[in-house]
Design a protein around this nucleic acid. Sequence first.
DNA 1: CTCGTCACGATACAGCCGTATCATCGCGCC
DNA 2: GGCGCGATGATACGGCTGTATCGTGACGAG
Lengths: 204, 204
Amino acid sequence: MIRLYRDEVPTKVDHEERRRQIAEAVIRIAASRGLHAASMREVAAEAGVSLRLVQYYFHTKQELLAWVLAHLGEQLGRRMTRAAAERGAPASPRAFLYAALTALLPTDEESRRIVLAYTAHFTLTLTDPGQEAGLSYANALRDLLAERFAQAGANGDPGTRAATALALVSGLQLAVLAGQYTGEEAVALLTRHLDEAFAAPGAG
Amino acid sequence: MIRLYRDEVPTKVDHEERRRQIAEAVIRIAASRGLHAASMREVAAEAGVSLRLVQYYFHTKQELLAWVLAHLGEQLGRRMTRAAAERGAPASPRAFLYAALTALLPTDEESRRIVLAYTAHFTLTLTDPGQEAGLSYANALRDLLAERFAQAGANGDPGTRAATALALVSGLQLAVLAGQYTGEEAVALLTRHLDEAFAAPGAG
DNA sequence: CTCGTCACGATACAGCCGTATCATCGCGCC
DNA sequence: GGCGCGATGATACGGCTGTATCGTGACGAG
């Protein structure tokens, strides 16, 4: 028969919220003990729920990890746009670039957790077939940045600028996570690189 | 019969060679199916030996992984110096920088395997306590490159140059491994970045 | 009241994991 | 010829893994 519940999906608890709660547990484990330590049982314990619940909201572990990955991407995107918005609305293309790229660096505890978990996921999928979803996302981000580089009047080819900047950010993320640099040092390194991209020719 | 082996230690087989054989199996597995797939049994099968043998030459799995990591570092170092030597001996500081940094990018099947396995290892140790060994190595490499940047007369602070270049290489490695760029594209990106570091001020 | 279904608990299952134990072979040495 | 020992095979053990099954309160619908 046709569902005639109030007017919504027939759920008494907020599934999305539960999933978020469990996903956060995965992220916490991945950031502290590594993604390989995130077994279904560990995740359940960390989230304060039973193993059955994790199975209930994510039928399989693969589904759980995929959801977590999407959740992480969302959070990273929000961080970028929020940081850009804080530079004044609407931010100039150049200010946007500084803000957005800096927002990707692990500078505080939260961003460190996010980037660490994201990196672990990323590395795992490196050997899995067909991860083109993340690829197109990365390319879209690069194209967006390239547009901003062009608008901001950066030297050289905007596409090259964007690709180089993103790769640099990616490398700096790892360096900070490994403890080679502090978040501030990485920001300084990135800032200097961007400054160079905008340096007036002849202003050695 | 004549002793073809060491006359010092009473070993009939070359332990180092056996270890190398097993380590290569780990690298092959890590590059194709991921480091998490490299169980002791899988490694034994891939190396064509029995499980007992892997245990015999590496008392524990942790010992095996540590050995593999050292092996990978060695191979990467050899690739760098070899590439530098091919640019003429002794290579100019600037040529050395181009060669050494390019050698770190996954441009062929072998380097792809090495970098992929190295990345997997690196990511795993990100959440392990006390991995300062790799850190001091990274710092030493950066200082060496900084020296070359200074000798080659690069613009700006040599330390910043070296740190930025290394982080960029690291990011490009990931991008190539993920399939975002080809090895050649990454080399081009890196080359352009280095060109900029050496561009005469005012040569916009 | 009955019933279906959502939400969840307890527990079982087969399989793989790293590691340990025991039993041999091959071979130089006394 | 026996012995010691390095090198290796076969196999067992406890533990953890992801997943599946069965059961059961709560609660709105008919």
